[in-house]
Design a binder for these strands. Structure first.
Lengths: 209, 209
DNA sequence: CACGCAACCTAACAAGTGTTAGTTATGTAC
DNA sequence: GTACATAACTAACACTTGTTAGGTTGCGTG
């Protein structure tokens, strides 16, 4: 039987898998395959343990997925807040906005399986899990709202844009990249620049006729 | 037993449910609850029949969901193509683009459970179903690409925009509205205008300093 | 060397899944 | 009234799911 060898492909035989190990594997699988088709047995197998053992670290599957959702948002939130706050105090609205957009995309596409898993599976998890994740989510949304409101108060943004609306549009558009972005076809930075260009200046040629 | 009455709540006792009836119910449930948590038994119960009876009309669950995915895209495609082709031949690029955006959003948020179900569950269905749905999907994407390429050739679009990239960005942003749009807070038309405004002109105040 | 704890395993449970085969009721055509 | 197709029902199948209870292993501490 090659069954023994097959197991060793995914199992590295180093120290304990632990709570973090399970979370890492689960986040990756959720991102790749969605919530519904990733069972505890699948997570356990990839992590190199047995399904029942997961209950040593977690009380339920919901607890796992909620933990992933929360840390996923916090990762993006941190990345974005840091990028904005590290701008020079006299930075222009455009520069700040570009930094925020780039940070969000980087967290999503580069840094964290947790962030991408969040975007992918949020709409698939049980309502109770979604509700439990809402506060963390609202906190990140508030960060964007406060940034956009500041830029609007400065007069940098057009005065007829609705901040909440713009935030939904921005984050929605950025998150959608997860569905098709391929690092082999271009860098995250180039993608971010592209998106920022559209949001900042639009796509129509300036009319000079 | 009130079991008989309970059944009658969802069952209207009119003629046969039929293939179309099953599809309508399935599309609605998929849109509302996602793919994974909608079983054949749930579909059957809401439709007012028993689970096994579904196999009179369909060969498998995959066949149901694929049918929904296909008609979902075709509905948006038709709506968008009609909106564009019914524009005056001297219509400006901006007007045409606004019509296309509005049509896509209307199909998604107003018209069809199939369209919204498609967007919601595409990422959750088995790979084989996704593959089978791809041709229909590509056809719609090609429609957008050809429209955008035309506008770019006219010189209406900035010459440095990548058509494929812009299409992905546009459709991604529009589809994301499904996740939060609430008809009680505003009309689809107002939403479409908002989105078109951003894409066309951007959000930054024109600099006159 | 014994103890204790952390981290895991084994084996089973009840519930739910898609699917199938065989059966039944209802109408329509000849 | 017989024949046939339509549209459903019933009951079971093999399987997967999250979850639980109790047992086992190995390692560090006293």
């Amino acid at each position: 039987m090659s069954n023994l060898e097959t197991n060793q492909v995914t199992q590295q035989a180093r120290g304990p898998v632990g709570r973090e190990g399970v979370l890492d594997v689960a986040a990756r699988l959720f991102r790749e395959q969605g919530y519904g088709s990733v069972s505890l047995r699948k997570i356990a197998q990839v992590a190199g343990i047995k399904a029942g053992s997961i209950y040593y670290h977690f009380g339920s599957k919901d607890e796992i997925v909620l933990s992933i959702l929360d840390t996923g948002i916090m990762a993006v939130h941190d990345e974005m807040r840091l990028a904005v706050s590290s701008q020079a105090s006299d930075a222009s609205a455009e520069v700040i906005l570009r930094a925020a957009i780039t940070a969000h995309l980087r967290a999503l596409l580069d840094v964290s399986d947790y962030s991408s898993a969040n975007v992918r599976i949020f709409g698939q998890v049980p309502q109770s899990v979604r509700d439990a994740n809402l506060p963390t989510r609202r906190s990140y949304e508030a960060e964007w709202d406060s940034l956009l409101a500041r830029l609007k108060a400065n007069g940098a943004l057009k005065q007829d844009v609705d901040v909440r609306h713009l935030r939904l549009m921005l984050i929605g558009a950025l998150n959608a990249t997860l569905e098709w972005f391929d690092p082999k076809r271009g860098s995250v930075e180039a993608l971010a620049k592209n998106y920022a260009d559209v949001f900042v200046h639009g796509i129509l040629e300036k009319q000079d006729n």
